[in-house]
Design a protein around this nucleic acid. Structure first.
Lengths: 340, 340
DNA sequence: TGAGATTCTGTGAACGCTCCCACAATAAAC
DNA sequence: GTTTATTGTGGGAGCGTTCACAGAATCTCA
């Protein structure tokens, strides 16, 4: 019984070999751009490929090479934030472009619950991906531990406290926070508070430390309000608290633009003008920053480049290049708008 | 030369068979939950699987079954919109959850240029995915044509003009637009304009036709301003034009919340109060709607459910169920806030 | 000219799984 | 007590590649 699926049969490497008048092995060598193929053979194979409309069967290739040519992007973030955080989208796009240049496929893995953590862990040990990029890991993130144990090529986007020996690409949150806080002081503010969030990861903690450092002896720990989320509503909540503690506050550093947007709303409610009475600065340079009244001065981070660099690191590890287990900071810059 | 990769060798179906004391075939039957397996054999296999830590090699499975167990999500959208449009994120999440329930993997394919179109078309013909979900297709979308020609299981999210025989899941843009326009009239507005976008796809066109229908003989084609994008800046542009044509306009229907946000800004500039002087309504119920001053009355669409239903349709086609080539409308509802 | 290096090509043997057929064992029917 | 279904099991064949090795053809230089 040979002819079973005559209509939809896809052409194989053997068909190409037959048409080109060479052997299977030679076709494979051309396909993989290996050395030791004569120009004549190469030309014949290329012609045959387009003639029979050959496309390589990845399953067969993957089976023998024991590689999947896919990279996982693990986003450990509640769905809501996944949707709102503009950085995640940019990271995804950056990663995708780097990978598709290298003929790798991006597979997105969203973790939103413990059940998802298990599912993804199983997926990883199944060898479905040759490497992973982990976005926004928490301290002691279980999935990071799984990745480290499995020993698969990986990179963090961000700068985790415990990187488990995995390289990372991030921004210097400490320095960026310090820089924008300094500029806030330079515009003449003297009583400056901060609404802090994300204190379960390095990024959040570093923003506080940068703020503290920039303020020097003007720092008052009482004016740092920790809130649960990087969200607009946490901004409302945090700013109300801050105003209660210090009605004469004249500058606020928000750990994210979403928080800053909430802060602006509270200030408006309370009759304070921005930037005349109170200066406000944010972090992220997201849609919140441009849509606020007034538009926010904020820290811009190169999210696309972050994703791209992380992808390149994973690709390098797969190639077998030795990659240092440490990390890289990419530059941020301040976007000066009207809020301070 | 047998023992080459002794350390990282993953256990195979043969190892399981040996430990369980049955044959390869029986293990495979257990794995695929086929009939005709004795309870004793089943138990033994399951014990052996967890003992040796077996996970199935997908590449080998895919090779023989000629399936990839992956579904592509094709997003045909400029990167910027991909990032901004909250619906796309929700669609992705809905699709992902439906697919992972069925043990399928989601692969995201973003098309942003003609080069991407080619890349994705090639990817599809490579058999890397068993089916595709197409989001926000334009009229006569080349990628839709490719999918139709290839005959791979597919579904649209949205309601394309020419569905190429592919089923779709969408919302009734005409009805929704008509409904919200009517409510605008009920609040006493009499001179109502529209800022229209996305006229290269059905969704955009249907919103205009719904608007037109609701207005009846009060409709004035001069008050429909077409703009290039569903964006904030197009909103600014469109509303300036509308005010020029009709300074006494007292109601505006925006084809998206982002447009509506721009409209609000222009009205504020011009000293008009919302909703007292002019009522404004949007479409999408996105972040723009809640963040506007005042918050927008708008149409909520069930984006997550849209993605889920489209995924289920593709899965049904893969199973071989006959699926009608027509489509389904999912319900929308109006969220009444302060802008009208 | 001929030995040795270099470049090029063909082919058997995997990779790990599912499919299918043959057959064994048991149950049901005459 | 023999036939006929039904249920369960084993193992060969094959999916489309890459890899390693053997061998052929060509080039190099004494």
């Amino acid at each position: 019984m040979a002819a079973r699926r005559p209509p939809s049969r896809r052409s194989t490497i053997n068909d190409v070999a037959a048409v080109a008048g060479v052997s299977r092995g030679t076709v494979s060598r051309v396909l993989n751009a290996e050395a030791y193929v004569s120009d004549a053979a190469k030309l014949a194979v290329e012609a045959a490929i387009s003639q029979v409309g050959y496309v390589r069967n990845t399953a067969a290739r993957n089976l023998v090479t024991r590689q999947s040519h896919a990279i996982g992007l693990i986003v450990h973030e509640p769905h809501s934030l996944f949707l709102e955080d503009p950085n995640i989208g940019s990271i995804l796009l950056g990663t995708n472009s780097a990978l598709s240049d290298a003929d790798y496929q991006l597979v997105s893995l969203v973790i939103d619950s413990d059940r998802d953590t298990h599912r993804v862990a199983e997926y990883l040990s199944g060898g479905f991906v040759d490497g992973v990029i982990i976005v926004s890991a928490r301290a002691e993130d279980p999935i990071a531990r799984v990745v480290a144990e499995l020993g698969i090529p990986a990179a963090f986007v961000g700068h985790p406290a415990d990187n488990e020996g995995i390289p990372w690409v991030g921004i210097d949150n400490h320095a960026a926070a310090a820089a924008i806080t300094s500029r806030l002081m330079e515009t003449g503010r003297s009583k400056i508070g901060m609404i802090a969030a994300g204190l379960d990861r390095d990024s959040g903690i570093d923003r506080v430390s940068g703020f503290t450092a920039a303020l020097g002896d003007k720092f008052d720990p009482n004016l740092v309000i920790p809130v649960p989320l990087y969200s607009h509503s946490s901004g409302l909540e945090g700013m109300r608290e801050l105003l209660q503690r210090a009605p004469d506050v004249d500058g606020v550093f928000a750990a994210s633009d979403a928080l800053a947007a909430g802060i602006l709303d509270v200030l408006r409610e309370s009759g304070r003008r921005v930037p005349q009475d109170v200066g406000v600065v944010g972090f992220d340079d997201s849609i919140w920053a441009t849509r606020s009244q007034p538009p926010l001065s904020t820290v811009h981070q190169p999210a696309g480049a972050l994703g791209r660099r992380a992808a390149e690191s994973v690709l390098a590890q797969i190639r077998g290049d030795t990659v240092s287990a440490s990390g890289t900071f990419l530059d941020t810059f301040i976007v000066w708008r009207d809020s301070a």
